[in-house]
Computed example of a mutant assay.
Amino acid sequence: MTDNSESNEIHHEVVLDVNSHASQNCEESGIKDSVPLLKKLVAEVVGTYMMIFAGCAAVIVNLNNDHVVTLPGIAFAWGFTVMVLIYSVGHISGAHFNPAVTIAFASTRRFPFKQVPTYMIAQVLGSTLASGSLRLIFNGEDDHFIGTLPAGSNLQAFVIEFICTFFLMFVITAVATDNRAIGELAGLAIGSTIIIDILFAGPMTGASMNPARSLGPAFLYDNYTGLWIYLIAPILGALVGTWTYNFIRHTNKPTCDELPKIELTKIVPFLRRSRS
């Protein structure tokens, strides 16, 4: 009787597939993923185009209409545009739109080095196309240089751009790579950081924080004044920002290993039958 009762019990086998799913999550959230490179590049071109077009259009409209947009308006235009683009294509390309961000991620092995050149080309292409579109739309008396120029000394501009990009990349690294952060609010946090940076740095440097943002207009308007500042300072600021956050991060493990990735893959009910 005892053997029969035990043999007729219904058991539920819980199968835990830890290793395979951890590696799968690494591939989905890290360097290895299933999105083709071409789709990523198109997303970077389109995203950078929309960001530069919307942000610089706000600058032109402000100059052509007695500063009706105002500095806070320009800041919000840039910040909100980046925010919605992060939610739109962040899951496809990572929504870098910025060579400094791409280089910083690659330096911490969160982005493959071999894709850095193509990402940078896509970002500069998007910026150049947006600048060209704006110059076609706003011509004649409405044609204004939409690039970035230092209002003070080169040293002052360099330091400000470094600090702005440090702040931006520090926040990006925190909200986009740390599993303990609220990832759903990454777009809002990054967009808000851009707004803050532009509010205090916009009048002094244009608050570029992005080599592609400065390169596109420079190509179209053939104005390279102080361009080296906007190429070097953002890259250095982004590198220091991401490495600073990685230093204070609780663990040095990759993002996918910071929290246990244990999932129930299947629950199989079966009846153990006794052998007569």
Rank of each mutant, 00 (worst) to 15 (best):
Y49R: 08
K40E: 06
A75G: 15
F53A: 08
I74H: 02
V46Y: 00
G73N: 05
Y49M: 10
M51Q: 07
T70R: 13
A43G: 05
V69Y: 01
I52D: 00
G47I: 06
N65K: 12
E44M: 05
V45Q: 07
C56T: 12
L41Q: 06
V69K: 00
V61E: 01
A43W: 04
P72F: 02
G47N: 02
L38D: 06
A57K: 02
D66S: 14
A54R: 00
V42Q: 08
P72A: 02
M50L: 13
A54K: 00
E44K: 06
N64A: 09
T70S: 14
A58E: 02
V42I: 15
A75W: 10
G55R: 05
L63D: 05
V68A: 15
C56Q: 07
M51D: 04
A57H: 01
K39M: 14
A57Q: 02
Y49E: 06
I60F: 01
N62P: 12
A54Y: 00
E44H: 06
F53C: 09
V68H: 09
K40C: 06
V61Y: 04
T70Q: 14
Y49A: 10
I74R: 05
V59R: 08
H67N: 15
E44R: 09
G73K: 07
I52V: 15
I74S: 10
V68Q: 03
A57I: 01
F76A: 13
P72S: 07
V59T: 12
A57E: 02
T70I: 08
V59F: 15
F53P: 04
D66V: 11
D66W: 11
A58H: 09
G55F: 05
P72I: 00
V59G: 11
F53Y: 08
V59P: 07
N62F: 08
H67L: 12
H67G: 14
L63Y: 15
H67A: 13
V59W: 14
H67Q: 12
N65Q: 03
A57T: 11
T48G: 12
N64I: 03
V68I: 10
M51G: 05
C56G: 03
L38K: 14
A75T: 13
M51F: 14
M51N: 04
T48I: 07
V46N: 01
A54V: 13
L63F: 15
G55E: 03
V42N: 06
K40P: 08
H67Y: 14
M50V: 15
L41E: 02
K39S: 15
T70N: 09
V45D: 06
L63A: 14
A58Q: 01
L71M: 14
I74N: 00
V59L: 15
L38E: 07
L41H: 06
N65A: 11
L41W: 02
L63S: 12
G73A: 13
M51W: 11
M50Y: 03
A58W: 02
I52G: 07
V68G: 11
V45G: 05
G55K: 00
N64T: 12
D66F: 14
I52F: 03
F76Q: 11
Y49L: 12
A54W: 01
A75E: 11
A75M: 10
V46D: 03
P72M: 00
F76R: 10
G55T: 07
C56V: 06
